[in-house]
């Protein structure tokens, strides 16, 4: 059973604000899913190589030749906050008070 403390820790890592009700429900739901998943931990997998990519292919490399970038206006058009040609954000370390 996932504790509320663990749920809060994971939510903090994932930068998700959860309401109390959401966090409580999450603890129950995740616990039930993990209980199902836990069956694989009982399998004998000694010596089995992990699969990160289904194919054993080699990454193709790209020639070091510039291609045009996107127009700045097109990128900034989607931005919630624009300042001085950049994407505006609250300063890291600055507090809201």
């Amino acid at each position: 059973m996932l504790s509320r403390h663990e749920v809060d820790h994971v939510a903090a890592l994932a930068r998700l604000a959860l309401t109390d009700a959401e966090a409580e429900r999450m603890a129950v739901e995740l616990s039930s899913i993990l209980e199902h998943i836990d069956r694989i931990r009982a399998l004998d997998l000694d010596g089995v190589a992990p699969t990160a990519h289904v194919s054993d292919a080699t990454a193709p490399l790209r020639p070091d030749v510039p291609v045009p970038s996107l127009p700045r206006e097109a990128l900034l058009a989607a931005a919630p906050e624009v300042a001085d040609g950049g994407f505006g954000v609250p300063s890291p370390g600055a507090s809201a008070q």
């Binding site: 998700l16 990128l75 989607a78 919630p80 906050e81 609250p90 507090s95 809201a96």
Partner: peptide
Amino acid sequence: GVRYGLRLGGEQDLLSMYT
């Protein structure tokens, strides 16, 4: 919330904006 799409809490601190 930095480059596109929804942003909430952007007037607050960075962590609030993210979460």
